[in-house]
């Protein structure tokens, strides 16, 4: 059964068309990685799924239920089952690490302070962080630690879907690899469906069950990592080789 279905989704900002008839089916437990250059609409596709942006046209279904044009109460219920790791962590800078991790449990799910703290500590442990950082603020942490805390916050509510927006951007290769492994370990253990947006090919190879190349607002190609390495598709080949010559032109403004 498809867990998430994007069907003919379009989204534009003024004259800039970002998603254009975007369609993608994701099965339960699947780890799909969307690749593509900066500004091609990868993050917009995630934000449309979360209801942070409303598509101009098309449908997005989660568990066969429409999520476009629904009430805010219903949206909150759907989002209870979706975790999100933002590109820069988006940790609440006025809150401590433990308050950040427990936020969704307390505010979203109404779990008591004591119970949510226990779950929060367990989640931090899963991402390799100990109790010594519980009362630190995000500004006291390194980039890699902030990503880990953000990952702990994303998994704390035990969601069925987790979205990763460029999880390794700005990290050194070793920390990036650690974060990827954490994502794979954590997610596989939880059996959740994931969509990861990235242009980091090393990360793609570690995380993906299927890879989708987004170009000019559409999925240009989709397949497994092995198929990605073997395909003759000129778009994929150009992206993998990082060549400036080929059918892909990353200039923004896909009018």
């Amino acid at each position: 059964m498809d867990k998430i279905v994007y069907k003919n989704v379009s989204k534009s900002f003024d004259d800039l068309i970002v998603l254009d008839d975007f369609s993608l089916n994701i099965k339960k437990g699947d780890s799909v990685v969307i690749i593509g250059g900066s500004g091609t609409g990868k993050s917009v596709s995630l934000k449309c799924l979360l209801g942070l942006l409303t598509p101009d046209n098309g449908s997005i279904k989660v568990d066969e239920q429409e999520t476009v044009g629904i009430s805010s109460e219903y949206r909150n219920k759907i989002n209870e089952n979706i975790g999100m790791l933002f590109q820069n962590g988006a940790l609440f800078d006025s809150m401590t690490v433990i308050e950040n991790v427990c936020f969704g449990l307390k505010s979203g799910k109404g779990i008591s302070d004591r119970k949510s703290r226990k779950i929060g500590i367990e989640c931090l442990d899963k991402v390799g962080l100990d109790k010594s950082i519980l009362d630190k603020y995000p500004s006291d942490l390194s980039g890699g630690m902030r990503k880990r805390v953000a990952l702990a916050r994303a998994i704390a509510t035990n969601p069925e879907i987790i979205l990763f927006d460029e999880p390794t951007t700005g990290l050194d290769p070793i920390t990036a690899s650690t974060i990827d492994n954490l994502i794979v370990d954590t997610v596989r253990k939880m059996g959740v469906t994931t969509i990861t947006v990235t242009h980091d090919l090393a990360s793609v190879r570690r995380i993906a069950d299927r890879v989708a190349l987004l170009y000019k607002g559409k999925i240009e190609w989709i397949g497994t990592v092995q198929e990605m390495d073997e395909t003759d598709n000129p778009f994929v080949k150009q992206f993998i080789n990082g060549s400036s010559k080929g059918p892909i032109h990353w200039a923004r403004g896909n009018k």
């Binding site: 934000k47 979360l50 989002n79 999100m84 933002f86 988006a90 936020f103 969704g104 799910k109 916050r153």
Partner: peptide, 14 residues
């Protein structure tokens, strides 16, 4: 601008 408001929404908080 640091996406904390979006993060609130994803955590089912208006």
């Amino acid at each position: 601008v640091t996406e904390q408001i979006e993060a609130l929404e994803t955590l089912s908080t208006d």
